[in-house]
Every structure is written in C-alpha cells, then in structure tokens.
C-alpha cells in the first residue's frame, strides 16, 4: 500500500514538470508581452523594465532561473499587473477563498446528490425515480452562468434573502455555493443511481435480504459501499469541474478567489501569475485524482494496487 502511494506521488512530479514547462514556453512564445497594454513607452524605459524582470535574458536562461526559484525557494516571482506584490502573496490571499467555495459546494453536491440517486435506484422506474432523474437532468443541462442570474433575481432582488455578491459572511456564501454545487449534485445523483442499480441486483444483496435485514439497513450498510464506487471515481473530475465552475461563479458573484486570475492573468500576459495559477490548479487536480484512486482501491477490494 505505502509503496503504491509513494509511486503515485513520485509519478506526479514529471507530469507537473511537463505542465509547467509547456505553459512556461507557451506563455512566452505567445504574441504580445506584459507591457504592451500600457501606453507606448520609450525603448529605453522598455529595456529597463525588461531587464528588471529578467525578460531580456535568453529563453532557456529564464527557464533555468524560473525553475531554480520555484524548486529551491518556492518563489514564483513578481506580479506584473499589481506592482509591489508577489505572485505568492496573491495566491495566498485568493486560494483559501476558492478552496472554501469548492469544498462547501462539494459537500452540498454530495448531500443532495447521493440521497437523490439512492431514491432513484430504490424506487426504480416509479414516480419518485422519474422525478429525481428529471431534476438531475435539469441540473446537468442548465449552465452555471444561467443558474446564477436566476438565483440572484429570485433570492436577492425579489425576496431580499441573500446578498447579491461578495464573500464576507455565511449569508454571502449561500447563493454561490448552491450555484457551484447543484450541477455537480446532478451528476452525482445519476452516478449513484446507476451504481446502486447494479449493486442491488448482486448476490450478496439477495443474501442480506434472505437474512431478513431491514431494507434501509441493506441500502445504507451493504449496497451503498459498492454503489458509490462510480461516485468516488467521479470525484476527481468532479473537483476539476467545480474548479472550472468556480471560475464562472466567482466572476458573477464578484468573489475574490483565484478563478478570475485565470483569464485575467493570461489576457495581461502576466507570466508569473499565469504560472502560479497553473501550478496551483494543476497540482491540486493531480493530488485529488491520486487521492481518488487510493480511495477507490480502499473501497473496492477487487482492485489490485499496481501501477
């Protein structure tokens, strides 16, 4: 087990390096530079600016310095757009907000999705199943940027229950978390239903019934463990979906998370910030995916840990 974990974790390093390298050169080879957007400056000033940020060095030297700074000092360099602040500061300020949003949304998605899916499977092909799955289908089909304005219109502008935007008190968090979590909940409901339907037909469930266990005990203690396997394997992509979703949600609700730097940094050619955001999201995704694989193996004894 520990050998497997070690191998998987070590396997992340080359992938991460690949991503970082790819993005590093992609950003620098792209047309335009970080100081193009400002009004035209004399060439001497431009040269001074580039020298200050080490942009006049050959590409490979820049790459070497960047990697050295990153590996040995965990330093991502300065941020071009917000002078005087480092990329690390910006990430340290915004990442916790995004994490909070993502985790709350995932909790909500599980709390809504799993029961909905179980109901669908237990009442297979009956009214409750049809209703649960229609709700889930709507959840999958409505994009977050449509859901968000509807939520704001109903709950903020008409009923005045929750604030329109920002991220300050728990009341501020309600609408963004619902908006980020519901589409994921819909996916989880469908996966739970599918997994449960398969498990309910299995022999060990028939045995449990024959023993005379109560229906709820069978579902919660016996079927759910196997029925949730598809959900577990979805959690990796699900989290990445939430990260993407948080991009939209953070924009609409004006939440000071990391999502907005995604596009903003790329548009501004803010090399350091692009690298920082890529690195954080990339490693987060990879670690989560690995964790999901491990959880999968732990839940399903049939999976052999080799790889």
């Amino acid at each position: 087990m520990s050998r497997f974990v070690l191998r998987r974790v070590l396997g992340l390093v080359p992938t991460l390096w690949l991503v970082v390298t790819l993005v590093f050169f992609l950003v620098r080879l792209a047309p335009g530079g970080p100081f193009d957007a400002e009004r035209a400056v004399p060439p001497e000033v431009m040269a001074a600016l580039e020298a200050k940020y080490n942009l006049d060095a050959p590409l490979l030297v820049q790459y070497r310095d960047f990697l050295a700074d990153l590996v040995f000092r965990a330093d991502l360099g300065p941020c071009f757009k917000y002078p005087g602040r480092s990329v690390r500061e910006i990430i340290a300020l915004s990442l916790p907000v995004s994490m909070q949003l993502g985790c709350l949304a995932m909790v909500l998605a599980l709390l809504v999705g799993v029961p909905l899916g179980v109901v669908g499977a237990v009442r297979h092909n009956r009214a409750a199943d049809t209703i649960a799955m229609s709700v889930a289908m709507v959840g999958i089909s409505v994009p977050r940027f449509v859901l968000a304005p509807i939520l704001i219109l109903v709950f903020s502008l008409t009923l005045y229950w929750f604030p329109v935007a920002l991220w300050e008190s728990p009341r501020h968090m309600v609408l963004p978390v619902i908006c980020a979590g519901l589409p994921t909940a819909a996916y989880i409901a469908r996966l739970t239903r599918g997994g449960m339907l398969e498990v309910i037909r299995a022999d060990f469930i028939r045995t449990a019934r024959a023993k005379g266990l109560s229906e709820w005990r069978i579902i919660w203690r016996h079927a759910l463990r196997g029925g949730l396997l598809p959900v577990v394997s979805f959690l990796g992509p699900g989290f990445s979906g939430l990260l993407v979703g948080s991009l939209v949600v953070e924009t609409i609700f004006n939440i000071p998370g990391m999502g907005r730097y995604f596009v903003e940094a790329a548009l501004n050619r803010d090399y350091g910030l692009v690298m920082g955001v890529t690195l954080v999201y990339g490693s987060l995704l990879m670690v989560l995916n690995t964790a999901v694989d491990l959880a999968y193996a732990w839940l399903d004894p049939r999976v052999k840990l080799d790889g």
Binding site: L12, T15, V19, L22, V23, L26, S240, V244, F262, V277, T278, Y281, G282, L285, M286, N289, T290
Partner: peptide, 8 residues
C-alpha cells in the same frame, strides 16, 4: 487525464 486541460 490529470492534465489541467482547461487551463491550456
């Protein structure tokens, strides 16, 4: 699969 494609 673990690649952050959307970033790219």
């Amino acid at each position: 699969y673990t690649f952050p494609f959307l970033i790219l």
